[in-house]
């Protein structure tokens, strides 16, 4: 199966196999007019299987959202068919309005205008806690 290389755009590589669709929706790629290729279950020397997303346009990507969803992703920025920048993601220290606090006792459960902000509290286990009630994000 062949998917042509892109000339100008972004390639999200090393996506954990099976995660491509979640990332596709989380980044709002379904709302783009440009070509987007979703490649699932590619062979990978490093990961066994992986997914890849190719976006045939330069768009603003929320790297914090991406890092939270899958910190193993590599983001390649392509211009004139060449990689001009590459970012290896890690878990972000803080995420805002990416996930919602589910603790019914949290102030965010009654005050709707508040942003849902979580901070990384355990990098090894990838645990995030709500800044208001400190409940962990499940």
């Amino acid at each position: 199966m062949l998917v042509n290389p892109i000339k100008d755009g972004i390639v999200l590589d090393h996506i954990k196999a099976g995660n491509a669709m979640e990332i596709y929706h989380a980044l709002g790629l379904d709302e783009l007019d440009c070509q987007v290729a979703i490649i699932k279950n590619c062979d990978s020397a490093k990961m066994g299987k992986k997914d890849i997303l190719k976006i045939n346009e330069h768009i603003d990507i929320n790297l914090d959202v991406l890092g939270y969803l899958d910190p193993g992703i590599t983001v390649n920025f392509i211009k004139d068919s060449k990689i001009y920048d590459r970012k290896h993601l890690e878990l972000p220290m803080e995420i805002k309005d990416v996930i919602k606090c589910k603790n019914p006792r949290c102030i965010t459960s009654t005050e709707q205008e508040l942003s849902h902000i979580f901070k990384l509290s355990n990098r090894e286990k990838g645990v995030y806690r709500c800044i208001y009630c400190e409940a962990s994000a499940k």
């Binding site: 603790n103 102030i107 009654t110 508040l114 400190e134 409940a135």
Partner: peptide, 9 residues
């Protein structure tokens, strides 16, 4: 406050 995080807000 009965809601957790209210004083932070």
């Amino acid at each position: 406050h009965p809601k957790e995080g209210a004083p932070l807000v």
